[in-house]
Computed example of a mutant assay.
Amino acid sequence: MMHGYKQISVAAMALFLMSCVTINIYFPAAAAEQAADRIIEDVWGPDGKRSEQPASSEPQSMIETDRPVFVRMLEWVVSPAEAQADLNVNSPAISAIQSRMRSRHDQLRPHYDSGAVGLTANGLVTVRDAGSIPLAQRNAVNSLVADENKDRNALYAEIARANGRPEWQSDIQETFARRWISNAASGWWYQQGGNWQQK
């Protein structure tokens, strides 16, 4: 009888150790949305931010009971904080990018307002209606858009780098793409499903 308990104990310990080794660091989607919203408010200012909050997820108690018992037991030993990483968006490089974007926004804002420049579905910006830009300003606006896209791409890459997770770059970009649109001011244009829509 004692021999059977030892086998079960050894098997349980082996399973536990294998589980610990195979814990993945998942992309922290909720933390990424919060970080994106903070950065966007810093760049655009509070006037470009929507009052609506993203749809809340299920209550925590429901989420807890839906997980298998062994997962909950494992989390008792290895806290969920270890499996679900926070997102670091505080680095000198990220601050420098934000600063450039914040300065540029004053020049881009009138073109968002007029509909000349719109938000793309992939987290960048583009000239949507060149005809609404006076001919003398078109080169300058094209330059602003190119610089903005360069900084946005650098921002996504730098956040991934600052977190030691370069593989998160596309997830970060997708998160920002949604949040730029969500936080856009009324009247601004954005792409959705390949079509332009106005907020």
Rank of each mutant, 00 (worst) to 15 (best):
G187L: 05
N195G: 11
S170Q: 10
R102L: 10
A14H: 03
I133G: 00
A146S: 13
Q98M: 13
N149G: 02
P110L: 04
W188C: 04
A81L: 11
K150T: 12
E75M: 11
R178T: 05
A121W: 08
S56E: 04
A29P: 08
R178Q: 12
A177S: 08
L124C: 04
A160N: 01
D113V: 01
R38S: 15
G194K: 01
V77P: 10
A130G: 05
R102E: 13
R38W: 05
A30L: 08
P68Y: 07
E58K: 15
G115Q: 00
A185T: 04
G115H: 00
E41G: 13
S91I: 00
A184I: 09
M18T: 11
I40K: 10
S57T: 13
I40T: 11
I133C: 00
D129W: 01
R161W: 01
A29D: 04
H105D: 13
P28H: 10
A146C: 09
W44N: 14
Y5D: 12
V141L: 02
K6S: 10
P28W: 06
A85D: 05
S57V: 10
I23V: 11
S9Q: 14
P54V: 01
Q107I: 02
C20I: 13
I40F: 04
R128Y: 00
N88C: 09
M1E: 13
Q192T: 08
R109G: 06
A184H: 06
Q7P: 09
A162L: 02
S57Q: 11
N88W: 03
V117E: 02
A81N: 10
R67G: 12
L124M: 08
Q84D: 06
A32F: 03
A14V: 11
Q173T: 03
